[in-house]
Design a protein around this nucleic acid. Sequence first.
DNA 1: GCTGCCATGTAAACCGTTACATGATTGG
DNA 2: CCAATCATGTAACGGTTTACATGGCAGC
Lengths: 182, 182
Amino acid sequence: MLTYMSLRIALLGLLDATGPASGYDLAKSFERSLNHVWQAGHTQIYPELVKMAADGLVAVESEGARGRKLYAITPEGASRLRSWLVEREPTSAPRSEAALQAFLLPLLDRESAIVVVERIRAQFAERLAVLECKPRDTSRFGRYALRLGLAQGHASLAWADETLAELRGPDAAAVDDAVGRD
Amino acid sequence: MLTYMSLRIALLGLLDATGPASGYDLAKSFERSLNHVWQAGHTQIYPELVKMAADGLVAVESEGARGRKLYAITPEGASRLRSWLVEREPTSAPRSEAALQAFLLPLLDRESAIVVVERIRAQFAERLAVLECKPRDTSRFGRYALRLGLAQGHASLAWADETLAELRGPDAAAVDDAVGRD
DNA sequence: GCTGCCATGTAAACCGTTACATGATTGG
DNA sequence: CCAATCATGTAACGGTTTACATGGCAGC
């Protein structure tokens, strides 16, 4: 019955933190700063802003060129945002294709398993690289989530390296050392 | 256009690994072994099995008492499963309410932030405790995913502890400043 | 004039959750 | 006999993705 409305919260959070913004701006913000935490495209954002305006959580502050509409958070919206943050017990619905592949690894022969783990590792590494490019100090907003992402990313990479070492076996250890990781 | 069909893969994986099973059995398996990797309830599983049978990926092997239907994976299904595992580049669509709360922490005053992080920490700890209860050696199936979950869980807990220390610690003034600014 | 980005939206299809619904069997 | 568990399903709703669609403005 309960709808979680996390998309609303994310939008309210961005509006509260960075001031009035258009749907377009918010979509960009999702791409830039929130993509490792929550995802949403403009096709989800535009209708949601309309509904949120109807519910009094945001208001159109001004309309600019090219039909650009600037939304601002209302006191009601700011209040709801803080209530959610303090009261909401976070739920986790893990759905990770990488973890699913890891789960099913024993179905494969050793060679194939190594290929799969290498690909998973590459993806973890890429994700981590993206996070490590982000400024850690300048934007204070989102820095806790950034650190959480970094911690999880490093742990995931370490898992991939351990798993590869195990799959390649003790004989391969010497080769590993000589060639280096990755 | 492409649907990822990860639910199908998960079902095929379980059928391949543990032999023929009913929808009910599969729902239990999800709860028991796959819940930290992929989630699905019986209302999703039953219709999906019917569609998979129509597509020739599984077949009803026998019907037992109480209308119990035993599904078995077909050679076609096993082949598709392995192709997916070897070829599929895993995609991640992160949607974590805990991370969202972490992201928005700077909106709160120090006291509230501590309460929120404590709750997040408790949930990470609970998740980890569940994983640590699972047998690590007996069932080799799923053990790689289990280790991945443990690694990520420990990293998440460490993040919570560090964050709490920072929020409570002598640097806490910096957080207050950050909240006050802008 | 063309390319690319700004800026907004709608509609259909798909995936997942919640609620509803039914009946058989086992153990106390 | 009653409760719990086994066992299967359907329907409605809501959230997400993909595809479609439009037009303004800026720089080359």
